[in-house]
């Protein structure tokens, strides 16, 4: 025992509980999903002949359409949120002053309400004869087309739901830019655009990149927005996974699609991290 204590320092020893927790709570289920992806379709036991049959089936089917929808919607969400959130983050850090806390609170408050409740609330708001269209009709006589159950509203819903996950890391990033550096740039004759391009954006990149990654990973796994707001006009990959695990009872196929999704997302994230080394941009080395 003493030898063990001498071999491993207090750090590794104290990390044992969390390592066990992660092994049981994260690694084991993940390994189970990977293992299931190799067993024959529509079976439930791991103890049988493994094959790549489920992956072959995926590549021969139209599941790529769902992959493309998920990736496309996630990229669109990230781009829209980047454009929307950067000015807000800048305002929260440099412009709004004592109102910044209140505005931050307003952005954070929706997180305290379940996502499903908020999304169903949107349906009641936007549906034909609902809060918006019904009020316009009865108050002003306008009869407009409803926008529920469309791809556009799915995207809008994703932008709304994931806004805090882009805004808060971005705000942190913008707040890391020293005011003295900006002042120095202005004193040396830089224009506002030059200060933004040469000072603000590069120095706030840690927050921006973390916001991008967080939002992308969450958005690519989004399901409720397409199901409820989009009325399944778009089938994201998570919906295919859900159907495989429920109505189809094809756990191996669902597991194989999940593994592919993890690989695709993991690869994209690694590519971004190769371009932007988080340790470097947060100043650890």
């Amino acid at each position: 025992m003493n030898r063990l204590f001498k071999t491993f320092g207090p750090g590794p020893r104290l990390a044992v509980p969390i390592m066990l927790f992660l092994l049981g709570g994260f690694a084991a289920p993940l390994l189970a999903v990977i293992a299931y992806s190799f067993v024959p379709a529509r079976t439930f036991s791991l103890w049988q002949k493994w094959s790549l049959g489920n992956y072959v089936e995926i590549f021969q089917s139209s599941i790529y359409i769902s992959f493309l929808w998920s990736l496309g919607l996630a990229v669109a969400t990230v781009v829209i949120l980047a454009i929307v959130c950067y000015p807000v983050a800048f305002g929260l850090t440099r412009v709004f002053g004592r109102w910044a806390t209140l505005i931050t609170l307003l952005f954070a408050l929706p997180l305290f309400v379940s996502e499903n409740v908020r999304i169903y609330g949107w349906i009641l708001f936007f549906i034909k004869n609902g809060v918006l269209l019904g009020s316009l009709k009865s108050l002003f006589g306008f009869e407009l087309e409803s926008i529920v159950f469309t791809t556009g509203l799915t995207l809008l819903g994703m932008v709304y739901v994931y806004l805090p996950f882009m805004l808060f890391p971005m705000t942190l990033g913008v707040s890391m830019v020293p005011q003295q550096t900006r002042d120095a740039a202005f004193d040396l004759g830089a224009s506002r655009w030059q200060v933004f391009k040469e000072v603000d954006l590069p120095l706030s990149m840690p927050g921006v990149v973390i916001g991008f990654l967080l939002t992308f990973v969450l958005a690519v796994g989004a399901l409720a927005e397409a199901k409820v707001l989009g009325g399944q006009r778009v089938i994201p990959i998570t919906h295919d996974i859900e159907i495989a695990f429920t109505y189809a009872q094809n756990w191996p196929l669902g597991a194989a699609v999940s593994v592919l999704l993890m690989l695709v997302v993991g690869t994209l994230v690694l590519l971004v991290l190769r371009r932007f080394d988080l340790d470097t941009i947060v100043g650890r080395r």
């Binding site: 349906i123 009641l124 004869n129 409803s146 529920v148 159950f149 409820v228 989009g230 399944q232 006009r233």
Partner: peptide
Amino acid sequence: ARMVGDLATMNQALVSGE
């Protein structure tokens, strides 16, 4: 199909005229 959804969504859409 106008949409695919759960029974609550279906009933809501019927009542609202969607």
